[in-house]
Computed example of a mutant assay.
Amino acid sequence: MERGKSAKGHGAAKTSRSSKASSSMSKTGSMSKSESMGKKGGNSLLKQFFVEQLQDIYWAEKALVKEFPKMQKATTTEELAEAITDHMTETEDQISRLEQIFDMMGEPAKAKKCEAMEGLIKEAHNIIDETEAGTATRDAAIIMATQKMEHYEIATYGSLVQLAKTIGMNEVAELLAQTLTEEKGADQALTQIAEGNINEEGAREEEGEQQMEEGDEGEDD
């Protein structure tokens, strides 16, 4: 009986050692896989795509910095003009942040033409041309055009944050997340301006009203 117990105990010990070894191998295998993914991210197709998308949004941000003064000049309300100016300054900081990211990754700060943003900028020009100067309707249109740009950027930065995490670049992800937060904030600010009074004022405007007012002012002079 004692011998049987001993054998049984020996078997239990063997099973325990086997279980520990299996657990150890599992952990080692998991670590190796994680390390392998990290190394793969260093020159993977996903990382190449990530860099290309950084170049794309880099072009977009630089293009917006050039466009914001034109949009600001076309506004009617001071509140909207200030909001656009503030976001232009913020965008300049975002460009610097992207350049910092390129440097961290050992990549040149190269801009790749963003077809989507180019189209949105062209649409903004058309909106300004098709609305009457000095009206709340034009301001509402400018807000809409700007928010379309913001939504594109929000979608882009949101995806870039996740891609950066996937390829193991957490510091890069944190920097991109800062920009994402700023873009969301700018979008919310524009919504508040629109809902404050611009949309309501635009709803009361009638076609040709602004030209008539300007004509009356000319006669008074």
Rank of each mutant, 00 (worst) to 15 (best):
K110C: 04
V161D: 01
N199M: 04
L80A: 05
L190R: 01
E195L: 03
K184G: 01
Q100P: 14
G29L: 09
M31D: 14
F68P: 00
A7W: 09
G106M: 01
E130W: 02
A109S: 15
G202S: 07
I101H: 06
D103R: 03
Q192W: 00
K14D: 05
L190W: 03
E205S: 04
A12W: 01
P108V: 09
Q211M: 13
G168W: 06
M88T: 12
D93I: 00
A177M: 07
S44T: 09
D220W: 05
A136I: 04
A83T: 09
M37T: 12
I101L: 00
M144D: 12
S32E: 11
M88P: 06
S23T: 14
Y152M: 08
I198Q: 02
A141L: 01
A83L: 08
E115F: 02
T91D: 10
M71S: 08
K113V: 15
G202T: 09
L175W: 00
E78S: 15
K148H: 15
R204N: 09
M212W: 05
M25P: 00
I57G: 08
A189Y: 00
E78K: 15
S96C: 04
M25D: 12
G119Q: 01
I143H: 02
E207C: 01
V172M: 08
P108Y: 01
G106Q: 01
A124Y: 12
T15S: 06
D187W: 02
T166C: 07
S44C: 04
R138I: 04
T77H: 12
T156W: 03
G196L: 01
A12I: 08
S6R: 12
Q53S: 07
K8G: 03
L180Q: 14
M117Q: 09
Q211L: 12
D221P: 07
A12T: 06
G9C: 00
M169V: 08
I167L: 13
K5I: 05
A133G: 08
E213A: 13
G218T: 09
I142V: 10
A186C: 06
D187N: 11
E207P: 00
V161I: 11
E115C: 02
K47N: 08
E207S: 11
M149L: 13
E209R: 08
G208A: 07
A141I: 02
A203G: 00
M37I: 09
L64Q: 10
Q162D: 14
E200F: 08
A83S: 12
M212D: 11
G196N: 10
V65E: 10
E206G: 06
E195I: 01
D86K: 15
E61N: 11
M1N: 05
R204T: 10
T77E: 14
H87M: 02
A136V: 03
M117A: 02
A194W: 04
K113M: 12
Y157R: 02
A164D: 06
K5Y: 05
G202A: 00
T89R: 11
H10Y: 05
K62D: 03
A63Q: 12
I193Q: 03
A136T: 07
P108C: 06
H125M: 04
K66E: 14
I121W: 04
T191R: 03
F102C: 07
I193F: 08
G38F: 04
N199E: 11
T191Q: 02
E107V: 09
A177E: 15
I121E: 04
R17L: 04
E182T: 02
D216F: 11
Q147R: 15
G11F: 01
K113Q: 13
